[in-house]
Simulated scan of single mutants.
Amino acid sequence: MPEITSITVPISFVRDLLAAVHDPLKRRGLIEKAGIAPLLLEEGSARVTAEQFSILYRLVARELDDELPGMFARPVRGGAFKLLCLSMLDSTSLRIAIYRLSRFMRLVVDDFSVDLSVHGDLVRVALMPSGTTPVLKVFAQEVMLKLIHGVVSWLVGRKMPVARVDLSYSRPEHASVYVFLYPGAACFDQAQTALYFEAKDLEAPVRQTKRSLTDFLKRAPADWLFVSFAEHIVSHHVRECLEKHLDRPTAIADVAKALHFSVRTLSRRLDAEGATFQGIKDELRRDVAIQRLTKTDTPIAVIGAEVGFDDPTTFHRAFKKWTGSTPGAYRTST
């Protein structure tokens, strides 16, 4: 399951992750170890790479001895994730594996339970807040859905298709990143946060072993946070098509033709996913530019040209609009 290497993560995720680290000096030390400039925390539209966020997650989890750092009333101690995976490996089907996951979470977390129920042809895996915690933090819900879906997909050795994702909160400003986090249409302001997938998938066999678990744990949390599960989402296909021709002008008509849609149909499909062609194009340019600014010494003017800007001034203006910083300031700070 290949990772999406070009995506970036909103700075709000970094702030939420660091919320449990109360010592300012420790907080600064952790973000610097992850290669994130402290100044970015003050920029509302700043982004970090998926790799930087994954490194920071591991550092914070180790610092707090909490594998779900500060998300719940009591910490989930180091080693819990490994024990969870081990408990599921000898399951004869995905149904049994998810049941074991729900029982395991009941032992380590008081704030919610994982509820598995069948509704016709669909299965719902829902986060049910406890009486003592009527409202779960948004960040905690985002991470738990990714953990459940990522682990389930890893267990069966394929990207588990999801029919729908329900979120019990209103659409956040960073919702555009959900196309990479969740593989189904996101529905906000729902009664519970839940994933839905086809009931027949419950009988899928578990295909992983202790040997493959070792590699999975080494890469955690990247393998369950930032693996692409969005291939069937039209906006993902648009992004892939644009990325192949990023250094040249590509109009919506070009992409529609490549994807065998009319322009009208493509626009309608994107609208149904809460996306626009220009929005996808800008997000891709932003993410690729950030990747190259942080990981290469390529001149800024060349990076601008590589993401489709012939005029360096236009690139500088666009980048500042996207992130709150100029390309030069962003590179210096990181």
Rank of each mutant, 00 (worst) to 15 (best):
Asp247Tyr: 14
Asp247Ile: 09
Arg248Gly: 06
Pro249Glu: 13
Thr250Gly: 13
Thr250Lys: 13
Ile252Gln: 10
Ala253Leu: 14
Asp254Leu: 02
Ala256Val: 01
Lys257Leu: 13
His260Met: 03
His260Val: 02
Phe261Ile: 00
Ser262Pro: 02
Val263Gln: 07
Val263Cys: 04
Val263Tyr: 03
Arg264Phe: 03
Arg264Tyr: 00
Arg264Ile: 02
Thr265Trp: 04
Thr265Ile: 04
Thr265Val: 02
Thr265Ser: 06
Leu266Gly: 01
Ser267Met: 01
Leu270Ala: 08
Leu270Ser: 03
Leu270His: 05
Leu270Lys: 02
Asp271Tyr: 04
Glu273Ser: 03
Glu273Trp: 12
Glu273Arg: 10
Glu273Asn: 10
Gly274Gln: 03
Gly274Asp: 11
Ala275Asp: 11
Ala275Lys: 05
Phe277His: 03
Phe277Ser: 03
Phe277Pro: 00
Phe277Tyr: 14
Gln278Lys: 09
Gly279Tyr: 10
Gly279Val: 08
Gly279Phe: 01
Ile280Ser: 10
Ile280Phe: 12
Lys281Cys: 11
Asp282Arg: 10
Glu283Gln: 08
Leu284Ile: 04
Leu284His: 12
Leu284Lys: 03
Arg285Gln: 15
Arg286Ser: 07
Arg286Asn: 07
Arg286Val: 05
Asp287His: 13
Asp287Arg: 14
Asp287Ile: 07
Val288Met: 15
Val288Arg: 12
Gln291Thr: 03
Arg292Asp: 12
Leu293Arg: 00
Leu293Asn: 15
Thr294Val: 15
Lys295Ala: 14
Lys295Ile: 12
Lys295Leu: 08
Thr296Cys: 14
Thr298Lys: 11
Thr298Met: 15
Pro299Gly: 11
Ile300Ser: 07
Ile300Arg: 08
Ala301Ser: 08
Val302His: 06
Ile303Val: 15
Glu306Gln: 14
Glu306Met: 10
Val307Thr: 10
Val307Phe: 05
Val307Ala: 06
Val307Cys: 13
Gly308Val: 07
